[in-house]
């Protein structure tokens, strides 16, 4: 009851960075508990990924493999995780608070009657007690819990821990789990057009609000995002311009949209309603561009430019392009 088991998320044979963040935290916690770090991979032809997981400190890598697991199914995967919990007898199970992790972890927790802290930004295991802290009200407050269960469970917010390697023995243990006749299964993945960076995974997020004046001017926001180079920046939108139909809800940053925590967040023409601030105030650095010097966004920004967004954007894009070109 002292091991920490990490569910490793892979899609198409590629492991999510957030899973390595969870492994890094798991090593610390397993140290406090006096146990070892163990990992679980589920999918079709995934045993080749085990050495990659071992590099982040896994003493054991459980695998549940088969064509039945090629496509994600919360029912099928939850059953498989149950098998790994039986084998590992962990003192804690860690997931990423990703689309897959938040779909899966509650189902796994229900099966074992476990406590689950969702979207934790900090987890400790002093004296054997698992304690986790998470943002509530989209970050307007933080709540800390002691979590119990056999085993207790936590989903970890991506970007809350910096992933570091530390070699583990990585003994591979293949487990059997029932395949087929899942209650639901993913049939297809519709990738977004082009090679857009997912909003929650981007290092830089450039978001626009009413200050860009019309929908067509969002092009200037996309230009600024592109100036950071390929695969770096994503574009976001305030609720105001999503409600106005300028952008899709999938791009909305805020309490009823996505909560993001990038290294750099650039708010362009966003006044900073509390619902919006809730979705981005944990960003490492915040830049605000707004014509109203009294706008609430300036209170939480590290750096502000008072001015018309449409006048500032072209020059900023040019400067970022020059700085990121080499």
């Amino acid at each position: 009851m002292t091991n920490v088991l990490v569910f490793i998320e892979q899609r198409g044979g590629k492991i999510k960075k957030a899973s390595f963040e969870a492994m890094t935290l798991a090593r610390d916690l397993a140290g406090s508990l006096g146990g070892s770090t163990e990992a679980l991979l589920i999918g079709d032809s995934i045993s080749g990924l085990a050495p990659e997981v071992a590099r982040y400190g896994a003493a054991k890598v459980y695998t549940v493999e088969g064509t039945a697991f090629a496509n994600y199914s919360n029912y099928g995967y939850a059953t498989a995780i149950g098998k790994a919990i039986e084998a590992s007898q962990p003192g804690l199970v860690l997931f990423s608070h990703s689309a897959m992790g938040k779909d899966l972890a509650p189902r796994v927790a229900a099966a074992s009657g476990s406590g689950l802290v969702s979207d934790a930004t900090q987890v400790t295991a002093e004296g054997g007690a698992i304690q986790a802290t998470k943002p509530v009200f989209a970050g307007k407050a933080y709540k800390s819990y002691t979590v119990t269960g056999t085993p207790p469970m936590v989903t970890l917010r991506p970007n809350s821990v910096t992933a570091t390697e530390a070699a583990g023995t990585g003994e591979v243990i293949a487990l059997d789990a029932p395949g087929g006749d899942f209650l639901s299964v993913v049939k297809e993945i519709l990738a977004a057009s082009g090679d857009k960076v997912p909003l929650q995974e981007a290092k830089v997020v450039v978001s626009a609000g009413r200050g860009i004046k019309e929908a067509d001017n969002f092009k200037l926001i996309e230009d600024l995002a592109l100036a950071f180079g390929p695969g770096v920046a994503a574009c976001g939108a305030s609720r105001a311009i999503v409600d106005a139909g300028w952008r899709q809800h999938s791009e909305q940053v805020g309490q009823t949209g996505k909560v993001v925590s990038p290294t750099l967040y650039i708010a362009v023409g966003i006044s900073g309603a509390i619902q919006h601030l809730a979705g981005m105030s944990t960003s490492k650095f915040i830049v605000a561009i707004n014509k109203d010097p009294e706008a609430p966004i300036f209170k939480i920004a590290n750096y502000g430019i008072v001015g018309d967004a449409l006048e500032v954007l072209p020059k900023l894009t040019e400067a970022v392009q020059a700085a990121c070109a080499h």
């Binding site: 979590v147 300036f298 008072v306």
Partner: peptide, 24 residues
């Protein structure tokens, strides 16, 4: 229940903002 609340706290404070200037 399986969770016990330890504390509800305000979020960590942001650093003091700097207005770097006006316009382009």
């Amino acid at each position: 229940p399986a969770l016990t609340v330890i504390a509800l706290t305000p979020p960590p404070a942001r650093p003091e903002p700097t207005i770097v200037g006006e316009g382009p």
